[in-house]
């Protein structure tokens, strides 16, 4: 008992200050892509050709990058000789609409807070059921980590629950395999309305590396309506937390 207490004192307080404090991310963190097409060399399509998921395309002469497909893998930034494509340290990547994830020269439209009625219902207590539908366990692991002392999502009233009957929404990971489709539909149906669907990771948004596979469905929104998209492969826990707090309008005072 005394040993446990001594260990507790030694381990100290470990919860991050986010959202009040700026999160501490590694210097090589790969966040929001930045497109500077004025830097593009004439006729160059190196980025487009290098992308494993066709996330980056040149459309009528302008660059488009679909963050829903992007694996944040640096193939394009390495292929680009002029720095027209780069990955910034910005961890804020969530969007409310699928189309908003397609970056162009317009500023990126971050996810908006839920409408007033939903906010009244979920703003201070959001219970979520997680469904892995072909996820590789990386998105799942970084969702799980939100429940550790480091992120402690319980302090925001967010909790992952054991039954869809107890849930206000589901968090989907994976491209939705054929073999998980029915289970996902049933889990969604079991959640009482009104309900939210959150798609976490490139697979759940677009199929990720498994896009186009006949064994999967190219993401959650082919099966259930999605309210929040959190891109990444996998998204950093802070990116996920930022997305959740954003729709709950709980980011007041964030840096």
């Amino acid at each position: 008992m005394l040993k446990a207490l001594a260990a507790r004192i030694h381990q100290g307080h470990r919860t991050v200050g986010f959202p009040k404090d700026r999160p501490s991310l590694p210097d090589r963190f790969r966040g929001l892509p930045v497109l500077q097409e004025d830097k593009c060399a004439a006729g160059c399509a190196a980025c487009e050709q290098s992308c494993p998921t066709n996330a980056i395309t040149r459309h009528e002469g302008s660059l488009r990058l679909d963050m829903g497909r992007c694996l944040f893998c640096t193939e394009c930034t390495q292929a680009c000789s002029t720095g027209a494509v780069s990955l910034s340290p910005d961890y804020r990547l969530s969007a409310s609409r699928r189309d908003d994830l397609v970056l162009t020269r317009e500023p990126f439209a971050l996810a908006r807070a839920l409408q007033e009625k939903s906010l009244r219902l979920f703003g201070h207590s959001l219970k979520l059921r997680q469904v892995s539908a072909g996820g590789c366990n990386a998105c799942e692991a970084d969702l799980n980590v939100l429940t550790t002392v480091v992120y402690d999502i319980g302090r925001f009233g967010i909790q992952f629950v054991a039954s869809p009957r107890h849930a206000d929404g589901i968090v989907v990971t994976g491209p939705v395999t054929t073999n998980m489709r029915l289970a996902l539909e049933k889990t969604y149906a079991a959640v009482p309305a009104p309900k939210l669907v959150i798609a976490v990771g490139a697979c759940a948004i677009s199929g990720g590396p498994y896009a186009g596979h006949p064994e999967a469905h190219d993401g959650a929104d082919s099966i259930v309506p999605v309210d929040l998209y959190i891109p990444g492969c996998p998204p950093h826990p802070i990116t996920i937390l930022d997305g959740l707090l954003r729709i709950l309008n709980r980011l007041d005072g964030a840096p």
Partner: peptide, 18 residues
């Protein structure tokens, strides 16, 4: 089998950028 994504089938013909 719920997580089956057809990886081995998709690898035939590779390696490629995926």
């Amino acid at each position: 089998g719920y997580q089956h994504r057809g990886v081995e089938r998709a690898l035939v013909g590779g390696p490629d950028k995926r």
